[in-house]
């Protein structure tokens, strides 16, 4: 059962990449995470928000919604949702080093980083409607009694 949650909506400006990851880190502090867990969360959020800005909206302005919650066992769920162009082939997009923008020096590592740094990654995308990235991570210290 959800113990605590928060939701933020912000425009797809690149300067909000930093804001989003710091906001998640600040919320996660309630679970007494390690520095390493904080770094994992920040990096995964940074990747997902960057994808929404660069690929979802392709530099057009749109809203990105960030939802974070955790349950009694200290499992965090982080959702990043955009209403951009969507991903036609999610499996292909998730292949390491796959990128549609090599000329922008995009590494194609975004989803690999999310997968590696979080316990679970789920991507739901509908072309023309947008993309929802849902990630889960158990914070070992968890909720204090």
């Amino acid at each position: 059962m959800t113990r605590n949650r928060m939701e933020l909506t912000f425009p797809s400006l690149a300067e909000n990449e930093s804001f989003a990851r710091v906001a998640v880190a600040a919320f996660a502090v309630q679970l007494s995470p390690t520095l390493s867990e904080i770094a994992d969360l920040k990096t995964a959020v940074s990747e997902a928000v960057t994808n929404a800005i660069v690929h979802g909206y392709e530099w057009r302005r749109g809203d990105i919604t960030l939802r974070v919650s955790y349950d009694e066992r200290g499992e965090m769920t982080v959702e990043i949702e955009d209403h951009g162009r969507g991903i036609p082939d999610v499996a292909q997009a998730m292949e390491p080093f796959y990128t549609t923008q090599p000329e922008q020096e995009r590494s194609g590592m975004g989803f690999s980083v999310m997968q590696t740094f979080m316990d679970d990654l789920e991507v739901v995308s509908h072309p023309g409607e947008g993309t929802l990235v849902r990630m889960r991570k158990r914070i070992a210290a968890g909720v204090r009694a």
């Binding site: 990096t43 960057t50 020096e105």
Partner: peptide, 13 residues
Amino acid sequence: TFMDSSGIGVILG
């Protein structure tokens, strides 16, 4: 203090 996969692109370039 922080780097994500965008840094990989910069280093590789």
